[in-house]
């Protein structure tokens, strides 16, 4: 297992980069939000791998907290997207641009 740590961390770095790219290039608020979730889950992967590497439970403990916090974020985030959709009939972030300069 331990000899694969490098590969797992590399995978998590790739997933994290995909998430960042998604946030920066996508236009739909929900898709951006899914990309953020991808970032958080890539962190979970890295944490579990490091936890195994160091033979230490802290990393796995943090994973549980990250999941709980991600769930709380989903609840608030989707509520915000719904309220904006009700008023504007769109979730496209490029069209939601009243506040500029």
């Amino acid at each position: 297992m331990n000899q694969h740590i490098d590969a797992i961390v590399a995978l998590s770095a790739i997933l994290f980069s995909m998430g960042v790219l998604g946030v920066l290039t996508r236009k739909n608020a929900i898709t951006i939000f899914m990309s953020v979730e991808l970032m958080l889950n890539s962190v979970n992967l890295a944490l579990v791998a490091f936890s195994r590497l160091h033979n230490d439970i802290t990393g796995q403990m943090l994973v549980i907290f990250v999941m709980a916090i991600a769930a709380a974020e989903v609840a608030v985030g989707l509520a915000i997207v719904i309220s904006i959709f009700r008023n504007r009939q769109t979730a496209d972030v490029t069209e939601i641009n009243l506040l500029r300069w």
């Binding site: 994290f16 915000i80 009243l98 506040l99």
Partner: peptide, 22 residues
């Protein structure tokens, strides 16, 4: 405006949390 502010804050805040966590 309040909706928009909340959404920007939320998306940027969650994005920042991803960096902090990584």
């Amino acid at each position: 405006r309040s909706n928009e502010s909340a959404m920007k804050y939320f998306l940027i805040g969650a994005f920042a949390a991803g960096f902090l966590l990584y």
